[in-house]
Design a protein around this nucleic acid. Sequence first.
DNA 1: TCAATACGAAACTCAAGAGTTTCGGTACTA
DNA 2: TAGTACCGAAACTCTTGAGTTTCGTATTGA
Lengths: 208, 208
Amino acid sequence: MADQTNQHRRRLPPSARGRAQDISRDELIIGATLKLLGEVGYNALKMSDVASQAGVSKATLYRRWTAKADLVADAVATLNPFLPPDYPGTSLRDDLLALMERASTCGDRSDVVTATMEMARSNPDLYRTLSERFTTYVRREMGSLAVRAVEEGFAALSPVELDHVSETVVAFVTHLSSPASKTIPRERLIGVVDHVLTVLITGSRQSG
Amino acid sequence: MADQTNQHRRRLPPSARGRAQDISRDELIIGATLKLLGEVGYNALKMSDVASQAGVSKATLYRRWTAKADLVADAVATLNPFLPPDYPGTSLRDDLLALMERASTCGDRSDVVTATMEMARSNPDLYRTLSERFTTYVRREMGSLAVRAVEEGFAALSPVELDHVSETVVAFVTHLSSPASKTIPRERLIGVVDHVLTVLITGSRQSG
DNA sequence: TCAATACGAAACTCAAGAGTTTCGGTACTA
DNA sequence: TAGTACCGAAACTCTTGAGTTTCGTATTGA
């Protein structure tokens, strides 16, 4: 599992001679970028705000990234914490819910989802990359859930069907990530799990 | 069915005396706005471009709308052609596909969907309004399709279930409206219809 | 006919914000 | 210890684009 994340890193290389760059500042800058990105979105994000939020000078920013778009691209690319959710394992339903919650919060940075949509038009490549990464993550997790579903006695899903269930999860997470509410109400996630995902996986709906 | 669309019209009222405004220019301006909005999105949309595209002077624009946001809001509000699709009526599947196609093209202006997402962050109210209108439209059409499904012998869907199917349609349409491709590939729509919507409505999947 | 307003064209004002530069000083390396 | 590159702070340049104003002309209602 090689890391393909660094493929498109846009951070400028530090110089060979002279005083070394303080690498710990990278982290501060990326963190500040993500925080502000979540709060105000891409267009309203100001480099000067990033600098002051990171406790760093603007010159330091531009010593590492040549442009705002590059910095943001690298920052968002950092959003890897697509760790497997803590599956309660009590039921398929509960596990699905756990997955939805994890996916919709992106590891505690839910607002970045809408910020990404905002960037989509001007940075289609970046959008595509993130979108694919996200889908891949969900698909992988859904695969393991599907295995468990079979163990619970449900008919197995074909790979194609699994793809569609995964896409459904992604579609709902992005759709529900409204810029209005910071977090997706839990009831809505439950509704999707009970009335959509469960139906797709088990192939039958309960009366109601 | 009163028209609630004009509720928030932001166009300035014309003066009582003096030369009358040429109302036919409104149409040109709105048209140009929608066209450019689809092409370049909201942020990159320039008022001067709208003016020249409409064959109108910038002064004329500002005689009618005080700000870019207002013009765009009115323009997007125009996007009412949420007419019922031409249902082929040959099968539930075909009708679903027709609905998906209609919804995803918004009456031939598919790009506006992604432009709307771009505006979501800075204009949450506008986004909410459009989103609700869209959902309402899909929900209404889905209702009539559900009736037909019952006639074909499928178990009836509860209102709650119908809501979720409708939301699924909306989620997929917005999700598939990538800024990359102008139109959503038909195969993808078919995939969603066959592997998601049909399953949700009929409550069973064919062997995959 | 006349006052009021619309129209296009084009020059204009203004604010915001990206990116740069300078400076006084610090830290690393050879 | 000399040279180089780092750092923060702050002033700076420049572009972009929204919104305004002016002017010469065309309409309209009274």
